[in-house]
């Protein structure tokens, strides 16, 4: 498979996942803010931080902007100048799809093209103004439709493996950052409370007045990851004791958990570049992703307490980024010096 085509596939997967994730987080945070138990800033600042554009946002809108839900939503959903906004992600996904029309099915192209055109239409302005929930829902539904169509219309072959690899690595990063930021917000709730002074203790309860808010935050996090119902099935509503964090990191049967995403990403990479084919490029990518998979696999619920959730998540985010760099240089043709020597690829 041509490296450039693989690159378009990989980023198509990433942008579709990013689109869905952003829409979901905005919708959930909006619901959380409406409950009124958090200050607007407590609700919205984490969303900006998760996007990775904290500095850019503050440079443009000032620090006080973090407490303005409308501003944050506009920045992350509709601002063409914001690199992480939904409109930009969809435009980028469409650009990638446009370059691989001979790889993806016609239906896939139509869905991403329609979503792109709709986002720029007056119909979208109307939904944004009068039916915000409907706006996010449409974005989310289209993204989910895309992921379903890809699996049901494409050859289950290398191009789809690359799309899925991109999607899974993006999802790993999104889940990790989302959890990290929420976790951090929880520790901020009552800095004076001795029970919240360390990360491990933050899981084990706090003053009763904060208990309700804490639970609300955990539940909204689960909703943002589409994990509310799976979690309830698994834990019968016992939200405390770091159960949510453990679920989102370690639950191997939940398709948005870090363990699941890393394992699935490794499976896709093995399909693309079988570990036995040592003569093919991709060896370092495979090794790095394999190491991350083994590392995540070895994490126990106990580790989350002793090492701290933040440390675990930071390791995951850093390693995912390093794996993506290696995939880029080994398989997707980034910064390649033209040479016919496969060892140097």
């Amino acid at each position: 498979m041509i490296s450039r085509v693989a690159d378009h596939c990989f980023w198509f997967g990433r942008y579709v996942e990013r689109t869905e994730s952003t829409a979901r987080v905005l919708a959930v945070t909006r619901a959380l803010a409406l409950d009124g138990e958090l200050t607007p800033r407590q609700a919205w600042a984490p969303v900006v931080i998760v996007s990775g554009q904290d500095a850019e946002f503050q440079a443009e809108h000032g620090e006080e902007g973090l407490g303005d839900g409308e501003l944050v939503q506009r920045y992350l959903a509709r601002d063409m100048d914001s690199t992480v906004s939904i409109v930009r992600s969809v435009a980028a996904a469409r650009e990638n799809a446009r370059s691989i029309r001979e790889v993806i099915a016609q239906e896939v192209w139509e869905v991403i093209n329609e979503l792109h055109l709709w986002l720029r239409s007056s119909a979208a302005d109307g939904d944004w103004a009068n039916h915000r929930h409907g706006f996010y829902r449409r974005v989310r539904n289209s993204s989910q439709l895309l992921l379903g169509l890809l699996r049901s219309t494409m050859l289950h072959d290398t191009p789809l493996d690359f799309i899925w690899l991109g999607m899974l690595l993006e999802r790993t990063g999104q889940t990790a950052r989302l959890l990290d930021v929420h976790h951090h917000a929880l520790t901020q709730l009552a800095p004076a409370s001795p029970a919240l002074q360390t990360q491990s203790q933050s899981m084990t309860g706090s003053a009763p007045t904060h208990r309700v808010v804490e639970t609300a935050l955990w539940l909204s996090l689960l909703r943002a990851c589409s994990g509310f119902e799976p979690f309830m099935k698994r834990y019968q509503g016992r939200v405390a004791d770091g159960a949510v964090a453990a679920f989102l990191i370690l639950e191997s049967r939940f398709p948005r958990s870090i363990r699941y995403c890393v394992r699935s990403a490794y499976d896709r990479l093995c399909a693309i570049r079988p570990p036995a084919d040592a003569h093919l490029p991709g060896g370092r990518s495979l090794e790095a992703l394999h190491a991350l998979d083994a590392w995540v696999d070895a994490v126990t619920p106990q580790d989350l307490t002793t090492r701290g959730i933040h440390a675990v998540l930071t390791h995951v985010v850093d390693e995912v980024s390093s794996v993506c760099d290696k995939i880029g240089s080994e398989l997707l043709g980034y910064g390649r010096a033209p040479t016919a020597d496969p060892v140097n690829q």
Partner: peptide
């Protein structure tokens, strides 16, 4: 395969396409 110029390169006197499995003549 449909290729763009950026997918091709010349090494020595041969032309190659960059693929995920290495260069192909």
């Amino acid at each position: 395969e449909l290729v763009l110029a950026a997918d091709l390169f010349v090494d020595g006197d041969c032309c190659y396409v960059a693929t995920t499995r290495g260069p192909r003549r």
